[in-house]
């Protein structure tokens, strides 16, 4: 009897220790998050000004603004999504609505999974060999956008597929039973029902494309450019690459670090805002469906 009690006691203690450890894990994780955000906001805010946002760099990147980098990131991101969204959506629709279950669908699904796991710098190599060299687009917005587009493609496909899958089977049945063709059913019933989920996936990939650096290193980005890009064949400045360049190149580290803080703040704010919107949308949409 005595042993039993002491046993119970020790298992209760074990439980306490275990739970404390788990709580500690999440606290440390969140502290890292808070630390990164605090560091960048506290040092970056003083750099941000209207001039910083709207003017071009001056004095060898040690003064002035970063407007060309903001614009460059915008171009690259829009280009990437414009390329990947139609392709990804079509792929998801095929896999979920048309594809005969079996070998072909499995092969495509496997290649999507593997594409998602390819390191971003390898996408950069691919972009360099194919878009920059083989197609002769050079180091340009076009090459960078296409490379980033391929990078975000798997994410768009899986988010879209998940959203399509969440649209209940019964509404497809209802539409077909009313004499709609398969394409009418997809266009008028399935896609509208899946749209919030698809949008979430797209928004998250926008955040991803905006923040990626390695794929544009050799396909699009340049440290210094006089003024703004004038065509899709121009090389561009981009926020993430600009941070890297400011931290590793140039001659005035102190002044450059301050500007890098400003860029980091912009980039962080953009990606956090975009992800927050996406997460909010998704949660709202999920609870709508659970109804």
């Amino acid at each position: 009897m005595k042993i039993r009690i002491s046993n119970k006691f020790s298992s209760a203690v074990k439980e306490k220790i275990g739970f404390t450890f788990l709580a500690l894990c999440i606290v440390i994780t969140l502290l890292f998050l808070a630390g990164i955000i605090y560091l960048i906001f506290s040092n970056g805010l003083e750099v941000i000004s209207w001039e910083f946002l709207t003017s071009v760099p001056r004095k060898g990147m040690t003064a002035g603004g970063v407007a060309p980098a903001i614009v460059g990131t915008l171009y690259l991101t829009v280009g990437a999504v414009a390329f990947a969204l139609p392709l990804g959506l079509a792929c998801a629709i095929y896999l979920n609505e048309y594809g005969p279950r079996g070998f072909i669908v499995n092969i495509i699904r496997m290649s999507i999974n593997n594409l998602a796991g390819v390191p971003s710098v390898v996408f950069g190599l691919f972009g360099l060999a194919v878009f920059v060299k083989f197609f002769g687009f050079g180091v340009s917005i076009l090459s960078g956008s296409l490379t980033l587009g391929i990078l975000i493609l798997p994410g768009i496909i899986s988010a879209s597929q998940e959203a399509l899958m969440a649209a209940p089977y019964s509404i497809r049945e209802a539409s077909l039973a009313l004499g709609a063709t398969q394409w009418q059913t997809i266009k008028k019933t399935v896609l509208p029902a899946a749209m919030p989920g698809i949008m979430t996936g797209v928004i998250l990939s926008v955040a991803r494309a905006a923040g990626e650096t390695a794929p544009i290193l050799f396909t699009a980005a340049t440290f210094y450019k006089r003024g703004y890009p004038d065509s899709i064949f121009s090389e561009v400045m981009a926020l993430p690459y600009h941070i890297y360049a400011l931290m590793t190149e140039g001659t005035k580290p102190d002044k450059q670090t301050a500007i890098a803080y400003g860029c980091a703040l912009l980039l962080l704010a953009i990606t956090l805002l975009i992800s927050a919107v996406a997460i909010y949308l998704r949660n709202k949409y999920r609870s709508l469906y659970a109804r």
Partner: peptide, 25 residues
């Protein structure tokens, strides 16, 4: 036409549910 075991209205307005069949024609 067919009516199913579980009611399966589209996640659209009442109006759009009824007009759906005509629209696709």
């Amino acid at each position: 036409g067919m009516v199913f075991q579980k009611p399966n209205p589209f996640p659209k307005s009442i109006w759009q549910n009824i007009s759906y069949g005509l629209e696709i024609q």
